[in-house]
Every structure is written in structure tokens, then in C-alpha cells.
Amino acid sequence: MVYAARHGRHKLRHDQVRHCPAMGSLCTRAVPLMPRGTRHELTGLLLEGDFYPVLRVADGGEWRLEITKAWRPLLGKRVAIIGVRDGFDLIAVERITLA
């Protein structure tokens, strides 16, 4: 950090080599931790979640699903989804069908 002489307040210094880990996404060379907007085609078991339905895939991972279509009749069944990643474990579903 660099301190301003007149006001005594600090300003962040954009130094990619020395301050990149502390500045995170402010660095131009920082790697995004959550690649949002990536397209996914997944198959798994559709389960009831707290707020979102959950897709449990074969490797044991789980995805929360943001679905606007009727999905309750598919609970407990093996389904295939196509959607776009919208968060760490959230998929905005474009299509859901029985697998």
C-alpha cells in the first residue's frame, strides 16, 4: 500500500508482482476461481434440496439447480440437464430430461 502525503489515507497500489495475492480479482493476471457462464451437460440423480433441487452426479459431486420448469415429478429419478454455471455449485438449467 502507498500512503498519500496530504491526507494520510492509503491507496491500493496496482503492483501485479508484489500485491497480486492480496488484491485478488483486482489484478489483471489473477485466475478466476469460479468460471461462470460455462456450459455443462450433466447426468445424475435429482434430489430435493433446501432451496434449490440438487443433482447428485456419479463421482459424488452435487450441483444446485436453478430451474423454472416443472421438476418435482422427476425427483428421485436419473435425469440429464443442460445449463450454464451461475455460481460455485449452481447451474441455471436450460433443459432437463429423463436420462
Rank of each mutant, 00 (worst) to 15 (best):
G44L: 09
R29Y: 10
H14G: 14
R56Q: 03
I96D: 01
V84L: 05
H40E: 13
L90D: 07
M34A: 14
G76R: 11
G76M: 01
A58L: 13
R64C: 10
V57D: 11
A70H: 02
C20V: 04
K69H: 12
H19A: 08
L98K: 07
W71G: 09
L47F: 05
A92C: 01
L12K: 08
A4S: 09
T43D: 14
A4C: 08
I96K: 10
I82D: 02
D86Q: 05
R6I: 03
I96S: 03
R85Y: 00
P21E: 03
H40D: 06
M23G: 06
G24P: 07
C27T: 12
H19R: 06
W71E: 03
T97L: 15
L12Y: 08
G60Q: 08
L33A: 00
G60F: 15
F88E: 07
H14D: 14
R13L: 11
G49I: 13
W71D: 08
G8Y: 15
R64K: 05
G87W: 10
F88T: 03
A80I: 00
R39D: 07
V31N: 05
H7D: 12
G8A: 14
K77H: 13
L12G: 07
E41T: 11
P53D: 02
E41G: 15
T28R: 14
A80L: 07
I82C: 01
G60N: 02
L45S: 15
T68K: 12
R78M: 04
I91Y: 00
P21K: 00
T43L: 08
S25Q: 11
V31S: 14
T28H: 13
P53F: 00
P35D: 06
L90G: 04
R13W: 02
D86G: 05
V54S: 15
L74I: 09
G24F: 13
I96N: 14
V84Q: 06
K69V: 13
R39E: 06
G44R: 13
C27S: 01
T68I: 12
Y3D: 09
V79K: 01
G8E: 05
E48F: 15
F51K: 15
D86P: 06
H14F: 05
L42F: 05
A70W: 05
T38D: 09
V17S: 06
L26S: 13
M1N: 06
E48Q: 06
W63E: 01
I81M: 12
T28A: 12
W63A: 11
R29C: 13
E62C: 04
H19M: 00
I91L: 01
R18M: 14
L33R: 13
E66H: 07
E66L: 10
D15F: 01
E48P: 01
V31L: 02
A99V: 12
T97V: 12
L42P: 11
F51I: 11
D89M: 01
K11F: 02
V54A: 15
R18Q: 04
I91F: 00
E62M: 00
H10Q: 15
C20T: 07
L12C: 09
G60L: 10
L42R: 03
H10W: 08
L46F: 03
P73G: 01
L55D: 12
D89N: 14
A58G: 08
